[in-house]
């Protein structure tokens, strides 16, 4: 999902650590206890979580860009306000998540620097362009829909600060998917041109959205430890299937066609999609998606152009503290 690039297992430093502590830690996890920042935890747990939470945070922040691309062009004032509020929420979510990651010992600045240096990943989905207004509807409907599938189980993640951040995120996000679907309903009830716009957006986003859930279980390397540590509670394929099953009837209601002629419904009612093109996924993750360069350039520009503002605030705070000390000494 937002952390789909976590496909290498952490090397176990555990041998060096107290085996007894490790066993106690696992016992707490198994008993569904939450782990809190100051608790002892295996170094690999800390490292995995820092990576996962910060990648999730980066995804929220980079995720502002494709939708932000339409804030100034939203077709009505009602849509403009809703879209701005939604993109702002994503910023808030990034902020909550950075704060959760910081409880593990890395500062937000370190985490952001790693992303800007290209050392940390974010979700592949945000490297696709938003070309028409229907893309905004489709992102809300499908991308947020997929995100919710992933985030609801994370509310029960073993790491307390991450779980609490996800609870807040899920609460706020409840309007996002509805906002997107409402746009799709309006388009599909509209003119032929609008309906074609909706179908075109679905055609472009469907496969990238399925890729959001990450590589198939058979090839995913990090799932074992994440599952054991109750960071991850469902496998990539399980979540993907849940999403497809929930989405197909929604597409049918809209009168749109899922761009997968090979899709079939099995005896249990599950919709089975065709093979996903994982070559495309790998290309996007390694930086060759349609918008990777633009997204990174936009984030770097904001960061660099904001440097003098952050310096001014810091400098003022230092001066003020100095004046207060001087006053107190008088």
């Amino acid at each position: 999902m937002y952390t789909q690039a976590l496909n290498t297992a952490e090397t176990a430093d555990r041998d060096l650590e107290d085996a007894g502590k490790a066993a106690q830690f696992q016992a707490r996890i198994d008993a569904e206890e939450r782990i809190e920042p100051n608790d002892w935890m295996p170094a690999a747990y800390r490292k995995t979580l820092t990576r996962q939470i910060s990648q999730h945070a980066h995804s929220e922040i980079v995720g502002m860009l494709p939708e932000g691309n339409w804030i100034t062009r939203a077709p009505t004032l009602r849509r403009k306000a809703a879209l701005l509020a939604k993109v702002q929420d994503e910023c808030g979510h990034g902020l909550y998540l950075y704060a959760a990651a910081e409880t593990l010992g890395s500062s937000r600045e370190e985490l952001v620097d790693a992303m800007l240096a290209g050392k940390a990943k974010y979700s592949s989905i945000f490297n696709y362009p938003t070309l028409t207004w229907a893309d905004i509807g489709t992102i809300g409907w499908l991308v947020d829909g997929a995100a919710i599938m992933n985030q609801i189980p994370l509310c029960r993640c073993s790491y307390g600060p991450y779980a609490r951040a996800m609870i807040r995120v899920c609460k706020e996000e409840s309007f996002h998917q509805r906002q997107g679907y409402e746009i799709m309903v309006t388009l599909c009830r509209g003119s032929e041109e609008q309906k074609a716009m909706a179908q075109d957006a679905l055609n472009r986003w469907w496969w990238p959205v399925l890729m959001m859930f990450g590589p198939p279980d058979a090839t995913s390397q990090h799932s074992d430890t994440s599952t054991k540590w109750k960071i991850k509670r469902f496998s990539n394929d399980e979540l993907r299937q849940k999403f497809v099953d929930a989405t197909v009837p929604q597409a049918q209601y809209l009168g749109l066609t899922i761009p997968d002629p090979g899709m079939t419904q099995d005896a249990d009612g599950h919709w089975r999609h065709s093979e996903i093109d994982w070559t495309e996924f790998k290309q996007v993750l390694t930086g060759n998606g349609p918008c990777n360069r633009d997204r990174m350039a936009a984030r770097r520009k904001a960061h660099e152009e904001g440097a003098w503002v952050r310096e001014a605030a810091a400098s003022y705070a230092a001066k003020r503290a100095q004046r207060q000390t001087a006053q107190a000494a008088e």
Binding site: S107, R108, E109, E110, D113, A307, R310
Partner: peptide, 9 residues
């Protein structure tokens, strides 16, 4: 250059 830290609240 590493970005200087802004205090956490």
């Amino acid at each position: 250059m590493a970005t200087p830290n802004t205090p956490l609240w």
